[in-house]
């Protein structure tokens, strides 16, 4: 098997990896913010409920959450059919997308899991902003919403970039878990070569991750530099 063919196959798998990464990131950030607000809620029932949810999500392996999201709805449905399996068929026959159901199940599990982690980072960031910032906004007649978006948010952003970059880099590599419910991401592709006794593509995948994480690191450094004009 020549290098170019393998590279091309791996790239196809890596596209799925990247898609999973990007969609998870885009959806988990707003959901995480929402969860963060719920865990800081003044209503103790809301606060308690969401603290328990965050604890449960952070306390169970992501792989197990993948299995739960993928299999549980089918087990609970009266027909006993896995809805993601049906989604697979639907997407394949209507849009020609392969394995779409599994990808969506993965996305659901990832978004929930990462939103829980992000929410704790957001909460920490928001709670670290001094009371004086809110009070200054208040005596200047700003509304609560204005204080959050115009005063607090950018300070929180600056504070959470280092822990967020950690989580985001972890997410890149966690996408490899998706193969356990049949998503054909890059390692799964390499594994298919391995089952034909061609092992080296498995090692070759490392290069893809390294380049991607390298680019992300450059991006985070850039953002940190961009925000270095103020101190919080």
């Amino acid at each position: 098997m020549d290098f170019l063919t393998v590279t091309q196959s791996l790239l196809e798998g890596f596209a799925v990896t990247c898609l999973l990464f990007l969609l998870t990131l885009i959806l988990a950030i707003p959901l995480g913010l929402l969860i963060a607000f719920c865990t800081m809620s003044k209503i103790s029932a809301v606060k308690g409920t969401f603290k328990v949810i965050v604890w449960a999500i952070r306390g169970v392996p992501l792989m197990l959450q993948l299995f739960i999201v993928y299999y549980l709805p089918g087990m609970l449905s009266p027909t006993g059919l896995n809805p993601f399996g049906r989604l697979d068929n639907f997407l394949y026959f209507n849009l020609g997308i392969d394995n779409g159901g599994a990808l969506i199940a993965t996305l659901i599990a990832f978004v929930i899991n990462y939103a829980a982690y992000f929410s704790e980072i957001f909460r920490g960031g928001i709670e670290s902003i001094s009371k004086g910032q809110y009070e200054a906004g208040q005596v200047l007649g700003m509304t609560k919403r204005q204080i959050f978006f115009k005063v607090v948010l950018m300070q929180v952003v600056k504070r959470i970039i280092p822990p967020m970059s950690n989580e985001i880099i972890t997410l890149v590599k966690d996408t490899a878990l998706a193969r356990v419910i049949g998503v054909i991401e890059i390692i799964k592709v390499a594994d298919m070569f391995a089952s034909k006794a061609i092992i080296w593509p498995l090692f070759y995948t490392g290069a893809f991750y390294l380049v991607f994480v390298g680019l992300l690191s450059v991006l985070f450094n850039f953002i940190e530099k961009k925000l270095s004009y103020y101190k919080v």
Partner: peptide, 29 residues
């Protein structure tokens, strides 16, 4: 709130805005 203004012991300026923006922010809002 508009009737009273408050200057705090520890300033509480908004760090991400420059001096001019610190002054204009609340007016613009």
């Amino acid at each position: 709130n508009a009737r009273f203004g408050m200057v705090f012991q520890n300033f509480n300026l908004f760090p991400q805005y420059d001096a001019l923006e610190n002054v204009t922010l609340a007016m613009n809002l």
